[in-house]
Simulated scan of single mutants.
Amino acid sequence: MASSRDRQRQLARAKLDRQTARRTAHARRRRQIRAGVAGGIALLVIIVGALWMGGVFDKKPTPPAAIGDCTWQPNTAPTVKDVGTPPTTGMAKAGVAPTVITTNLGAISAELDVAKAPCAAESFRYLASKKYFDNTACHRLSQEQMFVLQCGSHNAEGTGEPGYTYATENLPQAPVPDPAASASPSPAVTYPAGTIALVNKGANTNGGQFMIFYKDTPASPAYAIVGKVTKGLELITKAAEAGAVNASGAKVNDGKPKNDIIIQTLTVAKPTESAT
């Protein structure tokens, strides 16, 4: 039978064995952690090195578009004529662009206001360079409320447009409505004779169609002004005297010009200072 002293020696040995086992296990875990950390660091160094070799850290962020640059939105209507889109940057933003609209009635000179409507002027320049307006009929003459000749529809039906639209610029400033007049009509502005304005189907839907006011006209301030006629407005005024007709040939106040008005060519020159 084991003595009390032997029993104590056995317990002390067992305690020492447990302590040794715990220290061994702790040491093993520390070695595993250190190995894992070292492996992670090595992997990170490899990844960073690969990215650096690939030039990732040398790439500069793409600068945002400059203020005033133009955005051309796709026009998916079935009646579009795809001639591409103008550039989004680099367009002129100052001065006026001399423009000549050569018609079967004679030449009409105009100025596009590049400073106030740079995107509209750029669209005109681009479409003119693609001969988009050449040999197209001005399809609408209005002699009722609005005194305008409308042109720029490539199919002469009022639905022909290029394959893009763009935002509205240079709207005329509407007068402040009188708060005391509860039933007053919507404020109107006067478009002076000779004004060239864009035709739209709602806000920011400008395309290739435009209208020339041949008389001072009070109208809604919804039409962006792109320029003005400087010479030849009398050609339109004289053509308006013949009136407009509908599809049956009957005289109307708003319809197709009775006497055809054809744009043979439209050219836009580089911007210069206004001569008027």
Rank of each mutant, 00 (worst) to 15 (best):
Tyr132Pro: 00
Ser182Lys: 15
Gln150Ser: 12
Gln145Cys: 03
Gln143Phe: 01
Lys258Met: 05
Tyr132Ala: 02
Gln150His: 11
Gly232Met: 06
Phe124Tyr: 11
Gly208Met: 11
Asn200Asp: 13
Leu235Cys: 01
Lys116Ser: 13
Tyr132Trp: 03
Phe124Met: 13
Thr195Gly: 10
Ser123Glu: 01
Gly202Tyr: 12
Glu169Pro: 03
Pro175Trp: 09
Thr195Arg: 07
Phe213Pro: 02
Ile262Gly: 01
Lys130Ser: 07
Gly208Ser: 15
Gln150Ala: 14
Cys138Asp: 09
Lys231Cys: 04
Ser184Asn: 13
Ala240Cys: 09
Phe133Arg: 01
Thr217Glu: 07
Ala197Pro: 12
Leu233Ala: 06
Glu161Lys: 03
Ile196Val: 14
Phe210Pro: 06
Ile236Gln: 01
Ser220Asn: 14
Ser123Asp: 10
Ala240His: 03
Leu141Asn: 03
Pro118Ala: 09
Lys116Ala: 12
Tyr223Trp: 15
Asp178Cys: 10
Thr168Asp: 15
Ala242Phe: 05
Lys131Trp: 02
Gly160Asn: 05
Lys231Asp: 15
Thr237Asp: 09
Thr205Gln: 06
Gly243Asn: 07
Asn253Val: 00
Tyr223Asp: 13
Tyr166Gly: 06
Tyr191His: 08
Tyr132Thr: 00
Leu233Gln: 11
Asn259Ile: 07
Ala188Met: 15
Pro118Gly: 01
Ala250Leu: 01
Ala242Met: 06
Phe133Cys: 04
Ala222Cys: 07
Asp216Gly: 08
Tyr132Ser: 05
Pro162Trp: 01
Ala242Ile: 02
Pro185Val: 09
Ala203Lys: 15
Pro187Leu: 10
Ile262Arg: 10
Gly152Pro: 02
Thr136Ser: 09
